[in-house]
Write a protein that binds this DNA or RNA. Structure first.
Lengths: 202, 202, 202, 202
DNA sequence: CATGAATGAGCTTTCATTCAT
DNA sequence: AATGAATGAAAGCTCATTCAT
């Protein structure tokens, strides 16, 4: 093989591909994408060197496969209806979903961010996905900020940066127990922040 | 070649070292630290390969030199007195300083974040500096949050993530004109967020 | 898997083997022997990887199978009686046969020549077959050149090179229409060349 | 280095590059281009692995460098004036030059022919150069064949194939002693062949 | 007979670093 | 101080071949 990334045709193949994806996620998170060697991945997956290339075009292809999953889930959050009777509730729910996805995929997101710094392809994918959810948040903020000097895009980018940065930095290795409390704090910051935007500070 | 990179002893040497630092900053930002080659740096600086090693121990040494500057400035912000008669003013001022530093050093910060993902040494330096300013912010928040369910460290980390993430993502290539307006928005978000923390959402 | 490639025992097997030979001939000709991958061959034949090794010991075995056919036909030409009442007619006939065989098997001959450059086994087979027909030609030239300074082997090798080189270079992709005209030209060159050998140039 | 094949800037570099070219020529001829490993070449040149890539882009680049020389010499032969008072002398001279070049560069030509079978780039270069000298020969034959049924291009290709094939097969490892006698035989074949073309065989 | 997943030796290529000049 | 040729360890990747199903 080697021509085409190959889609597994047997259940055995599917299992092997899944083991490789898991191994890649783990190795990328531990060593960083740049420092990770294909050898590390195949060792972790318990397969031979060549098998890696049966399922991925190359190292970037493995990360792409991981990003596919993550991007799909982020897309789902973006596309979900935001409307709720209570604005505070709506925000809390959205935040929670964002944080959940980021926390669940913190490994991949971290790898993705790193790879974006030196691989244009991943920078591009990141830009597309991120622009998607920033635009969505900005769209929600738009009416509330219409009469203020604040640009909804700027505010949205900042709020998203808070969740994204916090999730990828803070939640990476944590267990899920206190996630609820963290989500509460983030939601309060976000909601309060929005109120602050509509009411002059002074 | 000595083990330790030379401190320039002549003005010619100082100029060469400065050209190399500039080139490194630029190349690291463009290509990413992992993808940047010493070759690229020396080409950009217009010096030969060997000269690089006259001024830096190795590639990491060049980034370390850049980080030294940035860390020094961040340290200054952290150590400055925060107190101001008006809380809102104090926050606005701090935010502004943070944003300024991050925006001025966005290249280096971006490189630093990337390198942290695969080089323990840079992860360590990042942790130290970041812990410093998060702790400082948490310390400021502590009294206000004492009677709330919010953990000052969690809140501080989120607020810092907002500034840091926003600065490294959004301001990297921008011109400085609308920086003031962005700072205003960030400050409002932060300040409003803090209020939100002390007043139950409902 | 047996050590020795199976001789097809069923008509299905025979069809599969034939498809593989055709695919190999075609792929070798298109990509070259060295660059051709077993993968390409099995894809062209529409069979699986393993099936290839049911019929051939390895990649070289596939070429060997193709060479067997070609060598057999060349051998036939070599062994045919050359004598004819008219010398010119005899030469024309032999040339025609040679050219026909080379043209029909130009794909295989081209592959064979290439493989000879890096595989001693094929160099050996080529040498044997080529020596055979060069010797045969030399033997025919011998009496006529006895009283000249020309070495029959040298002349034979040159004449054979003309046909072989021309056939493999020029006729590879041509249709058969003008083959007759080409054969006429080649025969004239050959025949005239021989006359030239027996008559001093001046 | 590695970006650009690099032109040596010092005499030491020039010597190293020359040693690498010699080593490549020799290794390619011995093992064949496809089977030759960069390791073989650097071992023969007595340099390290990396040095190879200082002077050549890759294995193909090394062959390209060798072909440059050979193509240049062939071009010279093609461009030389052909005219001579005596047609037979003219032909003998041209043949001699061709044979000399082919014999001197038989190593490279052999490698080139082999590589042409699996590398389009070398096939292209070969076609260009070969078309050049075939066209030149055809142009010379044109007047003489105007009143015959023979196509000058066909005849030229055949005659050239004779010299090319003979030189690359027969002269590869020979010493130059009997080259003169071989050239005489080839010239006689060629000249006689041409006469044969103008006088009907029958 | 046929399949295709798995293997792993082998080769190419890169690039940080050294060092003679 | 500066140069740039040379090094060589380290990866990445390919593909002929095997073998369990």
């Amino acid at each position: 093989m080697s021509d085409v990334p190959a889609v597994p045709r047997t259940s055995r193949g599917e299992r092997t591909a899944a083991r490789l994806r898991d191994a890649a996620r783990q190795v990328f998170a531990e060593r960083g994408y740049a420092a990770a060697r294909v050898e590390d991945v195949v060792a972790a997956a318990g397969v031979s060197h060549g098998t890696f290339y049966t399922y991925f075009t190359n190292k970037a292809g493995a990360l792409d496969a991981l990003i596919d999953e993550t991007a799909r889930e982020l897309q789902t959050v973006v596309e979900e209806p935001w409307d709720a009777p209570d604005a505070a509730q709506a925000i809390a729910t959205v935040i929670e979903r964002f944080v959940d996805v980021f926390a669940d995929h913190a490994d991949v997101v971290g790898t993705w961010l790193e790879a974006s710094a030196h691989e244009p392809h991943f920078r591009q994918r990141l830009r597309e996905v991120r622009d998607g959810y920033i635009a969505r948040v900005a769209q929600q903020l738009d009416p509330a900020l219409a009469s203020t000097p604040h640009d909804p895009k700027v505010a949205a980018a900042a709020l998203v940066a808070m969740v994204e940065g916090y999730a990828t930095q803070g939640l990476r290795a944590d267990d899920a127990e206190d996630r609820a409390s963290r989500v509460r704090t983030l939601a309060a910051l976000w909601f309060g922040g929005l109120l602050g935007l509509t009411q002059p500070i002074g």
